[in-house]
Structures are given as C-alpha cells and as structure tokens.
Design a protein around this nucleic acid. Sequence first.
DNA 1: CGAATTTGACCAGCGC
DNA 2: GCGCTGGTCAAATTCG
Length: 268
Amino acid sequence: MLVQVLNTAVIMDVKVESLKSELKRVREENNTLRVMFEVLSSKYTKLESHLQEINKEQHKGMSSNQIGSVTEPILDVNNRRRLEFPTAKKPLQIFVRTHPMDDSLIVKDGYQWRKYGQKVTKDNASPRAYFRCSMAPICPAKKKVQRCLHDKSILVATYDGEHNHGALHEPSSSTPRGSSVANQLPSIANDKEAMNILALSGLSQTDRRHGEVMNQHNYDTNIKVEEYVSSLIKDPDFTMSLAEAVARTITGELKQQDINLNLNIPEE
DNA sequence: CGAATTTGACCAGCGC
DNA sequence: GCGCTGGTCAAATTCG
C-alpha cells in the first residue's frame, strides 16, 4: 500500500517535471517570437515613415507639374472609366483566408445568404459569386465573393446595401453549428458595426482553425510586412542583432523563471 | 418535396 | 449600333 502511494508520488513528480520543462520551452519560444515581433515592428515603423516622406516628396513634384491641368479619371485595364466611390460610401470589403484546398466561395459572417449567380470576370480567372441576404423577406443587402487574384486562399467579400433587419440572428438549422463567426460575436444591432468587428476580430477559435478575417487595411499591411520580413531575413546584420537580442532575453528570462518556480510565483 | 445551388440567357451601361 | 462586361433572372438540378 505504502509502496503504491510512493510510486504514484514519483510518477506525479516526473509528470510535474516534464510539464515544467514543457512550460519553460513554450515560454522561451513565446519570448523569442515577442522579441522578433518587437524588432520587426520598430523597423517597420521606421520604414513606413520613410516611405511616407518619399510619397510626400513625389506628390509635391506631381502637383507642381499638374498646375492648370484637369485631374485624369481612374481607368481600368481597358481604359474604361472606373466607378469611384467616395471614401465614406466605399463598399465594405473583407478578406477571409481559407484552407488552400477549400474551393468554396462561402464567407461565414453570421448572416444567411442565398446565392443567385456566378460569373467569371475579366480581371480575375476565379469566378465571382453573387449572394443576397435571405434572413429577411425583402432585405436589400447583397455581397459578392471572389478569390484574391494574387492569393487563391484568400476570399474577397464585397458588401452592398444595408440589412433592414436588426440584430444578427442565432445560426439557423441551415447554418452548421459553430461554423459561423457570429457565434463568437455579441448581438449587434448595426450591421456595419458588426462587419467592422468581424473584419477586425480574426482571432476567434473557429477562425483560428478555418482562416483569418482581415479588413482592407490589415490585408495591405500584412502584404507590406511579409515583403519587409523577407528582405530582413536576407539582411545578415539584422540576423546577427536579432540573435544577440534573443540570446540576451532568453538568458534573462531563464533567470526570472528559476526565481518564480522556486518561489511558486505564477507568471502572467 | 421544398429549399438551395448551378448555370446559361438576358439586360443595362459604357466605350468606340 | 455593336461589342464587351458586370449584374440579375429563372429553369434545371442537387441536396437534405
């Protein structure tokens, strides 16, 4: 009996030790990523401000050349006049990262949509799907969903019109349980507000598994960051300084962890 | 069997 | 007027 208890205690000790070492490893990894992110953020901020300065200078040059001329309309690839929406009335666009193997054009945003058409457009080989809201009998809300030209795993959803029904409903039987982003959202009366939250959330449990939801700004920023990261990786100076920073931080972190473990102080 | 989706036809707007 | 394009309709088909 006593032997059994001792054996159990030893097994528990071993488990505790392995969990401690696992925790330690995860904290180190987390810290490394945090340092990398901080370095990237600071360099990205500097680069962005530098880019803005360059843009300002270019703009000054252009405006001095354009004195007395009429601003040219924005034209598409066929020199056709493109519809320009004022910023305030610009249709809301959200970007949804999906699994590369998932070829459906379904963006789960908490509303029920009925597909009424599909077209292949000139500027994108991927078909564009047309949906209208089916949650209310005469809801004018519509959306178009098309795959991103540059990244097929990203769906671009363009929303037109306002929903004439208030709060987001609970998912109905036609919506798979737990698959809707709205499941994680509180009840929201205003659909634009809902969409803004949707666009900015991107971090719900479901989305971590099925994809990321981004708004236009986040998407553009992500592309910039990705380009910047790839250039930084090629920079040997950056790699060296990053390695030094990581080494310093890990050493400091380990010391702090030992103190915390000895004193049983929980970390944040 | 009803609802949802697919898909070819049709329509409107625009440039030439 | 013609051709091109995006958006919508509606019959056929599929799905639960």
